[in-house]
Nucleic acid binder design. Structure first.
Length: 91
DNA sequence: CTAATGACCATTA
DNA sequence: ATAATGGCCATTA
């Protein structure tokens, strides 16, 4: 476990249901404003159970990726009340 | 140690 | 509006 992973998990865990956060904002909140690229890396191969990593999307509004399939991610988000249209969240 | 790899980002064409 | 490009940083090989 590296310290960066710890911080990222800590931040992602705090995202309330129905809310979303960009990879960049997560990095910033984790204390490393320039490490947003690595955040994607960590969320990609994380194995932490119950981590709501599906609430982290791109900063441009697109859904982004998901280890177990983007389908699953959009489904989960929809289930939490987030409207998604054409791989994009509605504002 | 160095080099490659991404669930990315902002800018430019 | 989309597509290509350069940069970014922790992790992994």
């Amino acid at each position: 476990m590296t310290s960066f992973q710890e911080e990222v998990y800590k931040v992602v865990r705090k995202i309330p249901k129905g809310r979303i956060m960009s990879y960049k904002s997560v990095a910033k909140k984790a204390g490393r404003p320039l490490s947003w690229r690595a955040v994607g890396n960590i969320l990609n191969r994380h194995q932490e159970p119950g981590l709501p990593c599906h609430r982290v999307i791109r900063s441009n509004g697109k859904i982004g990726g998901y280890r177990r399939g983007v389908r699953k991610k959009t489904l989960l988000l929809k289930k939490e009340g987030i409207i998604i249209k054409n791989d994009r969240v509605c504002s």
